[in-house]
Design a protein around this nucleic acid. Sequence first.
DNA 1: GTTGGCACTCTTTCCTTTCGAGTGCTAATA
DNA 2: TATTAGCACTCGAAAGGAAAGAGTGCCAAC
Lengths: 361, 361
Amino acid sequence: MSISERKKKILAAVVDEYVRTAEPVGSKAIASKAGLGCSSATIRNELAELVSLGYLEQPHTSAGRVPTPMGYRMYVNELMEKQRLSLEETEDINRRMNQKLRELDDTISDVSRLASQLTDYPALALTTRTAVTIKRFDIIYVDANTFIIVVMLSDNTVKNKLVKLPVSVDQKLVQRLAILFNSGFTGITEGAVTPLLIHSTERAADDTMGVTSVIAAFAIEVLTEAAAPSAYVSGENRLLNQPEFRDPDKAHRLMGYLSGGGYILPPDQRMEEAGEIKVLIGPENVAEELKDSSVVIATYDAGDNTKGMIGVVGPTRMDYSAVAAKLSILAAGLSRRLGSGEAPPEGMHNKLIIKGDTGNE
Amino acid sequence: MSISERKKKILAAVVDEYVRTAEPVGSKAIASKAGLGCSSATIRNELAELVSLGYLEQPHTSAGRVPTPMGYRMYVNELMEKQRLSLEETEDINRRMNQKLRELDDTISDVSRLASQLTDYPALALTTRTAVTIKRFDIIYVDANTFIIVVMLSDNTVKNKLVKLPVSVDQKLVQRLAILFNSGFTGITEGAVTPLLIHSTERAADDTMGVTSVIAAFAIEVLTEAAAPSAYVSGENRLLNQPEFRDPDKAHRLMGYLSGGGYILPPDQRMEEAGEIKVLIGPENVAEELKDSSVVIATYDAGDNTKGMIGVVGPTRMDYSAVAAKLSILAAGLSRRLGSGEAPPEGMHNKLIIKGDTGNE
DNA sequence: GTTGGCACTCTTTCCTTTCGAGTGCTAATA
DNA sequence: TATTAGCACTCGAAAGGAAAGAGTGCCAAC
């Protein structure tokens, strides 16, 4: 499994060069570039071995070498220089992120856009929320036909809805309902909102106008929406920057998949610890559409049982090092912001842990 | 300016055929297809004249003819069959729309997505809001450190924000502030929120904790956001379906422009009446990036001084007829929904008025 | 005014040739 | 035993050229 130090250096050089140029790289190029003092002929021998070991392949005889997914995996796991962004870059990212962050949902799409800008790949952001409940119900009486429902959830987000009814409603009734909902509908998840519960609330409030069901419907809607994982994709068009997507059909297929909010992570993979970075290379992806693309994902902690992921999609020939570093900073920023609910400490450099499949099958 | 009836028929046939096939259309194809009883040689003569009149052009000698922007303009203005969608189609669109509509902002992006699905072109939706003011302020006291600001705007949207303070705040103070904001900050636009006003409110409430400025900041934020035009673009990737965008660079340029929320309408064009459809063909667009694309836009009435637009972007070779019909239904549905704030009457077929530049230069 | 016919034009497609980068192998060298 | 120089070989990409085909423009006939 382990290979000589020189082979590693050569493999790293091939990956670096191929990432940069998108052209198969030849023995001469490596000899002149990588600082190992040997001639192209030696390199050729090594390359041939790397091919037979499965780390590299040739598009055809007499072309240079190109890394296989296994080669990339080796690179990501062992060879890649954990890129340290300069202080300026880090601060730039943090500054741009701070400009964007406000509330949870807004934030996520903004940060996904930011990730796409920074990396020049399409970016996606997902949140999975678990077991959200309603913490508190308020109803603001506006006029006889109108009131506003305000719901505060266990993750401290607040949702509201303006309700206009065709009939007049007594302010007293609304007050009664607010009290009843506050005792009956708080602390429960969506599944627990049963017709029975709604019905008994309606009776207890002496509601003959059907207001109860309107409010209950909103409660269900809010709970459902909050529990559902949400996904944002931005910068799909940046795919077209990549030479491997010059074929419009290929680009189209992948973009369609991304826009459709196709799931990215294998369902059996549990969400990683916040701060970790996951790299899925080519065939390691489960989705057919991603089999020859790579995905880099950073997990962040949005507090209160909510974990989120932010990632980018690109060709397997991806600048894993730079992408991982940038995502890491974004994720850390999000964790700080969302996890605590407090203003973030600035300028913190953070550890970079990379995880992913090991290359064995 | 006006041309013979037969020329019109031929022009229409060229456009129809070219829209369908994306290939230059020859005299034979027209002779066999269009129901005018004359031979290809006659058609050739007519075609030659249409070219010299500027309605058609040839990519090169000995290729078929392709409509010029002026040809499309003629087609849109005079020749196009105002397409009637079948009752089923209309109902399908209405049904799908009804599933999506909830609140203004959500809605618009959803409808834009729907428009893109229906037409298979990228779609965009914009709202310009004029003179939004705050109608009503409520503050919900949650606990000593926490309260929720709820703001109802003149367009009947409701915004809220959860505020967590590092210090304890008296419930009385919050109540005083709610009353003061309700009298001082309602009915005014963003520009009228002056430091002076904030300061005097702060004094009147006897607020030494800086709560006033937090609430005022939210008021400003909400007003600013509400007054700003918002734009959504969806389905950019559908561009890649069109043969004219098989060149990735071309596609990329346009997609980048669209994603960037580039402005579409010429700034001097005032918003049209709701229900009208505007067609901008190729060079009629002001933006350089759109010079060889077409835009079809429907205006809808979102009630309360708010007009919105929903449109699609595609190659000049666009199925104007079908697109216009579909957008028209969507816009009508939106007007009904948003304009009145009431549930829409179902299944209504509506008039289709097409407007646009006249072809004179 | 319309039509059939025919020569002409220009693109598209396919085939062939050439060119060159990069390899694999062998024999010489340290 | 590991490294290197040298060289024949391979295979794709690029360039050139011929053939095919679609469609025109124009002329003479109706």
